[in-house]
């Protein structure tokens, strides 16, 4: 079966810094794939290249077999993306932003209106009917971003830190939605710093360190008998067992 997302040899260099060093990853259809790594490990850069938001220096990315760079229309229609920290159409309300994006995706007016209403109510954004996106809180921005990723019912979701700044109630709702999506045959790639979350949701994990894949496989293959957090710290932590203390603070 064609992988939902197939990354091969993706490389990106910013100046002297090799941010992503020939990463290969394959996300099978129907899998819930967690991408973990330290700040600056290259997760966001990898995901940006995988969906066509950043041009790689080398390598390729295919979404259900369609190359993101040579066949962007087919590839991008099949994926929903939640990027980290990018702007939205800021002077629109949540409903207007969804309507706008739905129409851009080529959905019919009625379908857009129905889905936008459902998404806003499930994500509890419908109270803020008159609020422009620019006035949203950080958590609300994540939720409207997730709504735009889901709107056109893609078969692959690429989510960069989807739970950051989201309150526990909304997080529970989002987890339910995502689990349902995977149960229905959808595929998800998600990046996170929160190991517990990845253990809870994902069936496959890749640990990224300094732009390379340090470990990849099913959750159990990667963590073995230990917790994912312990495995992660061992894989990417400093050699000198670097949990340091601040002597002047912990007196």
């Amino acid at each position: 079966m064609t992988p939902a997302l197939d990354i091969s040899g993706l490389t990106k260099r910013f100046g002297d810094n090799l941010a992503v060093d020939a990463i290969d990853l394959s996300v099978p259809q129907g899998s819930f794939f967690g991408l973990v790594g330290q700040n600056g490990a290259g997760k966001t850069t990898t995901l940006s290249m995988a969906v066509g938001l950043l041009r790689p220096d080398g390598g390729s990315a295919r979404i259900f077999g369609a190359d993101v760079w040579s066949d962007p229309e087919q590839a991008k229609a099949a994926v929903g993306v939640l990027p980290d920290g990018l702007a939205m159409p800021e002077r629109l309300t949540g409903r207007e932003a969804l309507t706008f994006l739905g129409l851009l995706r080529g959905l019919s007016k009625d379908v857009v209106a129905r889905r936008a209403g459902e998404l806003l109510s499930v994500l509890e954004l419908d109270d803020a009917e008159k609020t422009l996106v620019i006035e949203y809180s950080t958590g609300m921005r994540k939720k409207i971003g997730l709504a735009t990723a889901l709107l056109h019912a893609p078969r692959l979701l690429v989510l960069d830190e989807p739970f950051e700044a989201v309150d526990p109630v909304s997080a529970a709702t989002i987890k339910t939605i995502l689990r349902g999506f995977v149960a229905g045959g959808g595929s998800i790639v998600l990046s996170s710093h929160v190991m517990a979350l990845v253990e809870q949701l994902c069936d496959r994990v890749a640990v990224i360190d300094k732009g390379r894949v340090a470990a990849v496989g099913t959750l159990d293959e990667v963590r073995g008998e230990r917790s994912l957090e312990d495995t992660f710290v061992e894989l990417v932590g400093d050699q000198d067992d670097g949990i340091k203390e601040l002597s002047w603070l912990s007196r």
Binding site: E90, R95, T99, L104
Partner: peptide, 28 residues
């Protein structure tokens, strides 16, 4: 930052991608 007033918004009535872009821009 600047805070535009929160009042009722006219719904987007466009039905095409092009119309949606025009509607978004005009609102901006």
């Amino acid at each position: 930052a600047t805070r535009p007033s929160a009042r009722s918004r006219r719904p987007i009535t466009a039905a095409t991608a092009n119309g949606a872009i025009v509607a978004k821009e005009l609102r901006t």
